[in-house]
Computed example of a mutant assay.
Amino acid sequence: MTQHSIRQAKRDELAFPVRVKIRVPDTGLGTMLDRMMAWLRANVPAANFACHSAPGLACSTAAFYFRNVETAQAFVSAFPDADLADGLASPAYSRAR
């Protein structure tokens, strides 16, 4: 039986049950992505998150994968200026208005 290699993004989809998709503007995420990655490295063990580009509805997205809802919520709260891929503002941003 031949084993086929599964792309890392597919493995992460199978391994991480919680996803947060952030809308990527036409100009890119720029320094926000740097801040997001720094936050993840500082607050989440490496084996408990992953990040990949992902298809979105009429937009480019960055998909952040987590092992649990609490970590995903903390991530979203840490970046209230990020737009969720469904076109809505982050819930934390909406509460701050």
Rank of each mutant, 00 (worst) to 15 (best):
P55H: 12
A85G: 07
G56K: 07
V20T: 10
G56H: 07
L33I: 02
A50S: 10
R41L: 07
A82K: 02
V20S: 06
D83S: 01
H4N: 07
R7A: 14
A50Q: 05
P25A: 03
S5K: 11
T61Q: 09
G28S: 01
D86I: 09
R67S: 11
L14D: 14
D83N: 07
S77M: 07
D12G: 06
A9P: 01
R35D: 08
M36P: 11
I6S: 09
P25S: 06
G30P: 07
A82I: 04
K10G: 01
I22Y: 01
D34L: 12
W39K: 04
V18M: 10
F75Y: 08
Y65H: 13
A47P: 01
Y65K: 10
W39I: 02
A89S: 13
A92H: 02
N68S: 05
W39M: 01
H52D: 06
A74W: 04
K10I: 10
L84V: 11
F49C: 08
D81T: 05
A63P: 00
L88F: 08
S77N: 13
A78R: 08
L29I: 06
R67T: 14
K10A: 06
S5V: 13
L40F: 11
K21M: 10
W39A: 00
T27D: 07
D34N: 08
N48I: 02
M32I: 06
S90W: 01
R23M: 03
T71F: 01
G87V: 02
A72V: 14
L88C: 11
P17L: 08
A58H: 12
F79H: 13
G56P: 04
V18G: 07
P25R: 05
V24L: 01
T2C: 04
Q8M: 13
R19C: 01
E70Y: 10
V69A: 09
R97A: 10
E70H: 13
T71S: 12
S60M: 07
A92I: 10
R41C: 06
P25C: 06
S94N: 15
R67A: 12
A54N: 09
P80I: 05
R41N: 03
L57Q: 10
R23E: 08
R95Q: 12
R95M: 11
F75K: 05
A15N: 15
L84W: 08
R35L: 02
Q8P: 09
I6R: 07
G30Q: 08
D83V: 05
G28T: 00
V69Q: 07
D83H: 02
A62T: 05
Y65F: 15
A63I: 00
S90D: 04
A96R: 15
S77R: 09
L57G: 06
Y93E: 14
S5A: 14
D86W: 06
P80F: 02
A82N: 03
I22M: 03
F79C: 12
P45L: 15
A38W: 04
V20W: 01
M36T: 15
D81P: 04
V18Y: 12
D34E: 11
L40I: 10
T31V: 09
P55I: 13
A96I: 11
V18F: 12
S53V: 13
R95P: 03
A63F: 00
L57V: 11
Q3N: 11
M37W: 11
P55E: 15
H4E: 09
Y65M: 13
A78N: 11
S60L: 08
L84P: 03
W39V: 04
T27L: 05
L40C: 14
P25Y: 00
N68Q: 08
A89E: 08
A92W: 00
